[in-house]
Design a protein around this nucleic acid. Structure first.
Length: 291
DNA sequence: ACCGCACCCTGAGCGC
DNA sequence: TGCGCTCAGGGTGCGG
């Protein structure tokens, strides 16, 4: 589940393979919900475009193209953006992994889940966008044109403040966990880091957002920033699918205090970590440490 | 305005 | 061995 840290790690490692290079050709799968801009349009418009910069807004990647267009990429849940020549077992299904010896996994060949391939005029490494569940998105925005879903995003979660959370939670009866996942409040927080931040702030995920004190909002904002920064430092969370553009895996999953640790002992007090469902998302917490 | 929930999608894991 | 079921969840959109 790529959240802000995984997208930022992707941005940092993908940028050297994308910025200042000129797209020569585009191979894209047939139209579908994955493509907000039709593949035929991508194939026609992208060749000849040179990438000026690779930016991030929340969980979105924005490749700024010379001439003013923007290629927008969202990893969804299982999206993988990576550079040719960097293989990883994560790029194979478990059955494919089992049937291949490690030495046979040296090279990646685009498979049925590889929906977008960028080729460059320098003939160097191609860039692949693979996404098993197709919850990812690709869009090409013409110069001066925005996208509603980007404009609705709140401030980047790395800029979270207690004042912002306090204002956003007043009068809200939704669970604080659910509010943290609202991209219009803070852009970039997903299920893993929301649970981890709430543990750090010692607040139960189900607590009605409006009942947080100003002090708790300060603490929670600081924890949101802390866990996201730590996520970036460790290369992200590679729990199921995430792999960086260079084929490396993140290590944040080794530091998790609560996420997907249901039934395991709390690392602080030993109490069994519990799971509950909020807004049809699973939430994990320590019933003793979090009030 | 607010909030819960179905939907999109596919593979892994499990029971039979 | 293999079928069918459930679960995972970011984001959107709809209905109450």
């Amino acid at each position: 589940m790529p959240e802000l840290p995984e997208v930022e790690v992707t941005r940092r490692k993908l940028a050297p393979a994308l910025v200042s290079r000129t797209i020569a050709a585009v191979r894209a799968a047939k139209a579908g919900s994955f493509f907000l801009t039709a593949p035929t349009v991508l194939r026609r418009r992208l060749p000849g475009c040179r990438v000026a910069a690779l930016e991030r807004r929340g969980k979105y990647l924005l490749a700024r193209l010379e001439g003013g267009s923007t290629l927008l990429l969202h990893l969804g849940m299982t999206g993988q953006l990576f550079v040719e020549g960097n293989h990883s077992p994560r790029l194979l299904s478990s059955t494919a992994r089992a049937s291949l010896a490690p030495e046979e996994q040296a090279g990646f060949t685009p498979d049925r889940h590889t929906h977008l391939v960028l080729e460059f005029t320098d003939g160097g490494p191609q860039v692949f966008f693979r996404d098993v569940r197709k919850f990812g998105r690709v869009a090409l925005l013409p110069p001066g044109e925005g996208l509603e879903r980007i404009e609705k995003l709140g401030p980047d979660a790395l800029q979270a403040t207690g004042a912002l959370l306090f204002a956003a939670t007043r009068g809200k009866r939704v669970a604080i966990k659910t509010l943290l996942l609202d991209q219009a409040v803070l852009a970039g927080v997903g299920n893993i880091y929301a649970d981890e931040a709430l543990f750090g702030a010692r607040i139960r995920p189900a607590r009605p957002a409006g009942r947080l004190t100003r002090k708790q909002c300060d603490l929670l904002a600081a924890q949101v920033v802390r866990v996201l920064r730590r996520g970036i430092e460790t290369g992200g969370s590679s729990i199921s699918d995430f792999v960086a553009p260079d084929g490396s895996l993140g290590r944040y999953q080794d530091e998790r205090m609560v996420y997907a640790r249901t039934g395991e002992p709390c690392r602080v007090c030993g109490t069994t970590i519990r799971r509950l469902v909020l807004g049809s998302r699973s939430a994990h917490f320590c019933p003793r440490c979090q009030k």
